[in-house]
């Protein structure tokens, strides 16, 4: 390495990059496309991070409508179909006297997806228009949605357990409805959107602007 990294300054100012896989430091002018140590592809920032995030957020936001309007589970009881959307499922949980479970399901399948879309939209907009928001607060928001993101799969697991339990019996049967597929796609797209978003862009814009 021709020059040594200086403490307390960002790497991009010093012309350095870290390999995302092996964390080795190299100069991005000398090694523009691959890491000299582990030979994996490398770039200073994640490629097309904002475009990909936008595409995934918009997809998720569109899919959120069928996910909430169409039935997520269909309960077949005595030959009649009882479809349940996310909201009717939660309200029936409250009616049957399980407010605790209702809160868990409400957070996992309604609040978390919407919160993820809103926070990612806010951070992406603030990078795009160079708003002067607090960098650490934006990073904490991103970390929070990264952490809670996987808990929205909870509802899918519950559907899979419920349908497996009931379809073994004769009287009742539960199977996923149209809304379940849309809901799955919402979760997958938001999970990918959180991962493709490059948090280093938050600092890049504040330094330049």
């Amino acid at each position: 390495m021709s020059k040594f990294a200086v403490n307390g300054r960002s790497a991009i100012e010093q012309g350095l990059q870290a390999c995302p896989i092996c964390t080795c430091i190299s100069e991005f002018k000398v090694y523009p496309d691959h890491c000299p140590v582990c030979r994996n592809t490398i770039s200073v920032r994640k490629k097309n991070s904002l475009q990909l995030t936008w595409a995934l957020i918009i997809t998720a936001a569109i899919l959120l409508i069928p996910a909430n309007l169409f039935p997520i589970t269909i309960l077949l009881k005595n030959g009649t179909e009882n479809p349940d959307t996310i909201f009717s499922g939660i309200s029936s949980l409250i009616k049957t006297g399980m407010p605790g479970i209702a809160i868990i399901v409400f957070f996992a399948s309604f609040v978390v997806p919407i919160l993820k879309i809103l926070i990612l939209t806010l951070i992406s907009l603030s990078i795009h228009f160079k708003w002067n928001l607090s960098t650490t607060k934006q990073l904490y928001a991103h970390k929070a949605i990264d952490f809670i993101g996987k808990w929205s799969v909870l509802d899918l697991f519950v559907i899979s357990i419920m349908s497996a339990v009931f379809n073994k019996g004769v009287l009742l049967s539960v199977y996923p409805g149209t809304g379940a597929s849309a809901f799955t796609l919402v979760i997958i797209t938001t999970l990918f959107a959180t991962r493709t978003f490059d948090t280093r862009l938050i600092w890049d814009t504040t330094n330049n602007g």
């Binding site: 799969v153 899918l156 899979s160 497996a164 073994k168 199977y175 996923p176 979760i187 997958i188």
Partner: peptide, 23 residues
């Protein structure tokens, strides 16, 4: 009747493949 973990996704693999594969 017992239900195992892999019964769920296998049950609706044909009717709802997206959910089944994700689970």
């Amino acid at each position: 009747e017992g239900t195992a973990l892999i019964d769920g996704p296998l049950m609706f693999l044909h009717s709802d493949p997206i959910v089944a594969i994700t689970v």
